[in-house]
Amino acid sequence: MQPTMGTQQSSLVKEKVTMKKRSLSRWTETVRPYAYIMPALLFFCLFFFFPIGYMIYLSFHDWSLLDLSAMEWVGLANFQEIMLDSDFHLVVINTIIYTFGTVAISLVLSFFLALWLNRQAKIYGIMQAAVFSPHIISLVSVSMLWMWLMDPQYGLLNAILEFFGFPAYTWLADTSSALLSLILVSVWKGVGYNTIVFIAGLQSIPKDIYEAASLDRAGKLRTLAKITLPMLSPTLFFLTIINLISSFQVFDTIYIMTQGGPVNSTNMLVFYIYEQGMDFYNGGIASAASVVLLGLIGVMTFLHFWFAERRVHYR
């Protein structure tokens, strides 16, 4: 009996030890992955989540850059104010018109440019380079250049119009044409990049699919609609989303070319935020508008992915 008892006891003890060991190892197993991602997590917290959170926090306060200690909790008052402010409404509408105008014109234009320029001969390579070149010029230079081009009296564009006997156009000088003029500049700047990405997408479509389609008696338009467009859908999706987001955040061109004028006709969200924060010292309003911008971009991105999941074809 005794010896067996002894062995039993010792085995019991052993079991306890191994159990302890096991639970310890299980604990490290659970913790280990978190330990691994900790540095990245800290980084994101510090540089992404914290600023966003702090911005939201600020949007509930009345504050200004002049005196940061005089911050005052106002609840939703900032949001209430911008929601009732007709200027803000105009800013949002401008932003939406500008964004969709720019993205739609730029994508359609660059799609057809890509179809046209996607060829072997040398001249098409030169054309591609030419179309792409605005992309590498700084936006500031582009803005200066176009301010001159669009100058009502000394600008090149009006000179050309007049040369062909058309009346001079108002460009940036009139509320009815200023926003359109900004759209024109952005399209000019962005179309090259989109074209190149489209061309890359076109070139990744296997040639034999087109050959099969031609044997299947598909006409040009039908091939475009049924083969090229669906095959390009990942490219189209990518370009739409990055164009939308960057257009939504337009600032430099407005700051340099129009300062939001004339009469707020080119004032858009980011410029409005800047104006409120830096010029009018309405920190609270600026923060609230930033939150709205964040929300809008968030909704847009979400809708886009929701759509893409159903319609975009990834090979």
């Binding site: 050959e211 099969a212 044997l215």
Partner: peptide, 21 residues
Amino acid sequence: LAPGKRDLAMVFQNYALYPTM
């Protein structure tokens, strides 16, 4: 004559199926 009008069908080496259909 255009390929589609020749009334013939072709099976390609790597099939050339339409990936999006």
